[in-house]
Computed example of a mutant assay.
Amino acid sequence: MIDPPFLSLILPVLNEAATVSAQLAALQGLRARGAEVLVVDGGSADGTPDLARPGLDRLIDSPRGRALQMNAGANASRGQVLLFLHADTALPATADQLIRQATAAGASWGRFDVRIDGHHPLLRVVERMMNWRSRLTGIATGDQAIFVRRDVFAAVGGYPELPLMEDIALSKRLKRVGPPACLRECVRTSGRRWEKHGVLRTIVLMWCLRASYFLGADPQRLAIRYGYRPRQP
């Protein structure tokens, strides 16, 4: 029997034809060292699956919804550790080694610091606040490339199937198991969301959405405010 890989990279995608080939190309070094790459498509209409096939180990179709897609990828994966990677986020080249060191030291889950691509000076403030807040609270966001041991992910029930804030909800579950390993090496994530809608406006919106979520607001309503269309049956 073939031993399972140490690391499974799980990428939820939806209409990422412009970026998916380059992102997967950047993961081939990790793949060559034994990591498996799973792309979970939520119903792309732009040819994303065909573009992704040359650079992955498994392509999975899933109902649309980031939490649904990541859970589907986790169920289909074989790795001892699962890493959930957004389509606009790039890992450090030694991500597998860094995660191996963290788990060998006793961490059951963790995340990376984040660097936001873009030239607006407020983006430097945003990334520092994200990293500081995460280190202080033990809450990670999807932009920080959350990783978790398979057994721990299964024990907490995976991602809550929410249309928004699924990463925060998962972090709250995982904190009951133990604190995250807060790796100082950075993943790089696109600043397109901030620059498209205005950096300051997006900062205020995200603060309001997170505050509303912690006060008990309906995640479906928050998702609509964020700009997601409701998932079709």
Rank of each mutant, 00 (worst) to 15 (best):
G65L: 05
I224V: 15
V20R: 00
A35F: 01
D151L: 02
L7I: 12
V81L: 02
A52K: 02
S190A: 14
L170Q: 03
G34H: 06
V20L: 09
N75H: 12
F214A: 14
V40S: 08
R64K: 14
L27D: 05
V152A: 09
E185V: 14
R78A: 13
G158D: 05
N131V: 12
A104T: 13
G142H: 07
E161G: 07
T19G: 01
G79D: 09
W109D: 01
V156G: 02
M129P: 00
I203M: 15
D117F: 06
H197N: 14
L85G: 00
G47Q: 04
A67W: 01
G158H: 03
A217M: 06
A72I: 14
D41F: 04
P54Y: 12
A211L: 10
A76L: 09
R193H: 12
R66A: 11
G42Y: 06
L51P: 03
K175R: 15
L183G: 06
E36F: 01
C208R: 15
A105W: 05
V156D: 01
W207N: 13
L122P: 01
A25I: 05
A18S: 15
E195F: 09
A102C: 09
R231D: 15
R149V: 06
L123N: 11
R66L: 09
R229F: 08
G106Y: 12
C208W: 10
C182M: 13
G110T: 08
A140K: 05
P92S: 07
P163T: 04
G118D: 05
P63T: 10
D117T: 07
V204F: 03
L24G: 00
G157D: 09
L98V: 07
I139L: 15
A169R: 05
S108G: 14
R192I: 11
P219R: 04
L68Y: 00
W109C: 04
G157P: 04
A67Q: 03
Q28S: 11
A107T: 00
D3P: 14
A104N: 10
P219M: 02
L164I: 15
T48W: 04
L205Y: 07
T94D: 15
L183N: 08
R192G: 06
A223F: 08
F112W: 10
I168N: 07
A90H: 11
A32I: 07
K196F: 10
T189M: 03
Q28A: 10
M165V: 03
